[in-house]
Nucleic acid binder design. Sequence first.
DNA 1: AAAGTATGTCGCAAACATACGTCATACTTA
DNA 2: TAAGTATGACGTATGTTTGCGACATACTTT
Lengths: 125, 125
Amino acid sequence: MFATYFAIMTYTKATAFGEEQQELAKMAKVLSHPARIAILQHLARTQRCISGDIAQEIPLSRTTVSQHLQELKSAGLIKGEIDGLTVCYCIDKEQFTKAAAMMATFLQQVASSYDCDCQPNPIPA
Amino acid sequence: MFATYFAIMTYTKATAFGEEQQELAKMAKVLSHPARIAILQHLARTQRCISGDIAQEIPLSRTTVSQHLQELKSAGLIKGEIDGLTVCYCIDKEQFTKAAAMMATFLQQVASSYDCDCQPNPIPA
DNA sequence: AAAGTATGTCGCAAACATACGTCATACTTA
DNA sequence: TAAGTATGACGTATGTTTGCGACATACTTT
């Protein structure tokens, strides 16, 4: 107990990243591969929910595309329904919108930060 | 020459990812680690351009934080000015805003896509 | 000049991501 | 029921990222 406290206090700095920081990083990670961007764009553009034809649109093997789809799915950004032989994927609009809003808010906050002129630390607190 | 053509044509699908897809993925990758999110938030929040004090705010060693700073810098999202002993980092507002806008547009486009009900491929083109 | 401080760079180990061939599953159609 | 097709899961090779200690650099202060 004391030991635990001590261990924590020894670390002057933050002990872990915040919930939101981890959420944002996770969202960003999902988007951090061109194949997954391409898949999302394709799903957004197409009128119908294309299944494995997606692999036709992307310069990767079917296996690899399937993996990327799994990743997008387990992140909750898309959903897939089995319909007989084929699987119909589409954007999970609700979840995607939520995650996108969080990301957009973060970007907005950082972008609208005060424009620094890189002066040396003014008040060495 | 013919061989090259043949090699290209053999690939029915796209040969490479688009410029924009790669740009977006790159931006996302930079944001795909909680430490880098935390650093950006910290820089945005702080009135003055903190240098190595950043390491105090983050649950990682100074070395590792320095690396993350380098990554943000080489992605152009932040800039750092040496001022004697310390280095003053801050958001590169122009570049960050540009990248953020690109990302926000992409998210918006996907989020505002048509809401699919996952019917089986209607017209098997 | 010597000691001190803020930083960055190097090199390594461990963890993770990517790509893809092959195999397993489950449905369709003949 | 057998052949065919669309998929996902498994295994594995190869590459990339992360984290950090130890060292190098460059400036400041005494």
